[in-house]
């Protein structure tokens, strides 16, 4: 049965206009494009797949679940510290912090009780505030279920990547819709499989990590990552 209330929540939180600063993060699209390693829709679709399959599905999704089922703030913070330890690239860590803290800030201002409590912990520990952990907090505050939270986490990553590619002129607006459709199938396939509950978060996206890590050394830079 179609759940209108849940669907409307998904539309609101999954909207690219949701004010969480996501538009300023390209997660490697800008760097790869600058190095001529990303020059069209095929390349972009490959990049989106790599992000989803080898980082989001094995890392963000696992951390999101840990934070989503965490019984208290300390358990959430433990997931956050795991995110910190499992992300060797300083720029990836910084990007995840900035994106997470921005999203958390919106939820705090909207009055999310868990977000407010967790935000208070962040000021004492600079390692906390990674995006997938904060997504769990925000979606819990919003009353969004875990299945929908996973969907939102994966989909907002996809729309961010594709939107960055459009703004950088890598693809046009019609190609963007084609890339989004392709990504929907990838995400659907990944979500059809449930990771084991004891699996450790991991990622293997060396090209993306290198592209993001090179960001600070680039003179021309429009995105945070």
């Amino acid at each position: 049965m179609f759940d209108t209330e849940a669907a409307l929540a998904l539309l609101q939180y999954g909207d690219s206009a949701y004010p969480a600063g996501g538009f300023a993060f390209s997660w490697g699209v800008e760097g790869l494009s600058a190095d001529d390693l990303l020059s069209g829709q095929v390349d972009l679709d490959d990049l989106v797949f790599e992000h989803l399959a080898f980082r989001w599905n094995t890392m963000d999704r696992i951390l999101l679940r840990r934070a989503f089922i965490a019984a208290d703030l300390d358990a959430i913070a433990a997931a956050d510290r795991t995110a910190e330890a499992a992300t060797p690239s300083a720029q990836m860590r910084d990007g995840s912090h900035r994106a997470g803290r921005a999203l958390l800030g919106v939820s705090v201002r909207l009055g999310g009780s868990l977000a407010i409590a967790y935000r208070a912990m962040l000021s004492a520990d600079a390692r906390l505030g990674h995006l997938p952990v904060v997504q769990a907090i925000v979606y819990r505050d919003a009353g969004i279920g875990f299945e929908a939270a996973q969907l939102l986490s994966g989909w907002t990553l996809v729309t961010g990547l594709v939107s960055a590619a459009v703004r950088l002129g890598v693809i046009g607006h019609i190609e963007a819709q084609q890339s989004l459709a392709t990504a929907r199938h990838v995400l659907e396939a990944l979500l059809a499989e449930t990771p084991d509950s004891d699996v450790q978060p991991s990622s293997f996206t060396p090209l993306i990590d290198i592209a993001v890590s090179r960001g600070p050394s680039r003179h021309v830079r429009m995105f945070s990552t």
Binding site: P19, G21, F23, A24, S26, R98, R101, A102, F223, S224
Partner: peptide
């Protein structure tokens, strides 16, 4: 410094979150 993601209007109007975080 706050990067604007090629959206100079968005970062101060529709979605000023990153600027708010930087100010906080």
């Amino acid at each position: 410094a706050v990067e604007a993601g090629a959206c100079p209007h968005t970062v101060i109007r529709e979605d000023p979150t990153l600027n708010i975080e930087a100010a906080d």
